[in-house]
Design a binder for these strands. Structure first.
Lengths: 120, 120
DNA sequence: GTCAAGCATTGACCACCGTCGATTTCGTGC
DNA sequence: GCACGAAATCGACGGTGGTCAATGCTTGAC
């Protein structure tokens, strides 16, 4: 196994009121954790994937639904879903032949809150 | 010139009330733009850099101030600052021998707003 | 059981990126 | 002018990541 896709834990639930970026400087570990989540989002294909999920019927979609729209091969889409899931940004549920993915809004909001440094 | 560091423009000022991620699926171009900004943040060293700037006296610092704290060589820190500046996340101002960098809060907030999809 | 369809996994290729040593540029002070 | 210090640039190395073809796995239908 070349690398077990670290599976980021829940999300560092912003400590106090504002962004933890402002106060105590990020430790190397904290920075590593946050960077892992941001890196999962920092790809055009994955951003479009998230966007497609949010804009789909019932805010969910299966791989075959988005493959064509993204112009990517099926394994590539599957790989991106795996990356997003490992970061906790989406969840996948198998229903029959298809696997339906949906965004985890809380995970997105948590990241957004950490980045919002305009509350001072 | 190996690549002119695309210098992302201002920031796509979120269109309406909520995140543009939810409505019309991101175009390839939009996704590319947003990914470029996120990629600039999706690195542990650069996150710590931002954090150090925000936590510094006057919310600014010069390269020599943070080099030691990050445990990186001076050219590496300079490179990270350049990356962040190209994404519009920090600005640098030369004052005498030193160059002082500071975070652009609005740029951070704009990214945060795009990612916050919890308003539906 | 067999077959077909949707997904996941593997392996490989290529590009990009983080890092550093060496060098160069810029600003200050003598 | 010259010397010193801070920062930027250059060149190179190693690692990571996005992509796809080929393959394997799982589910549902017959």
């Amino acid at each position: 196994m070349p690398k077990p896709l670290p599976v980021v834990d829940p999300v560092p639930t912003a400590v106090a009121c504002c962004s933890p970026l402002e106060h105590a400087p990020l430790s190397a570990d904290q920075a590593q954790q946050l960077a892992a989540r941001l890196k999962a989002l920092a790809d055009p294909s994955r951003l479009r994937l998230v966007s497609l999920l949010l804009g789909s019927e019932g805010q969910e979609a299966c791989t075959c639904d988005v493959t064509e729209e993204l112009g990517l091969a099926q394994p590539t889409v599957s790989h991106h879903f795996k990356t997003l899931a490992a970061a906790g940004l989406v969840t996948g549920e198998r229903r029959g032949t298809w696997t339906y993915y949906r965004v985890v809004p809380q995970a997105m909001a948590d990241i957004a809150r950490v980045l919002d440094v305009s509350c001072d």
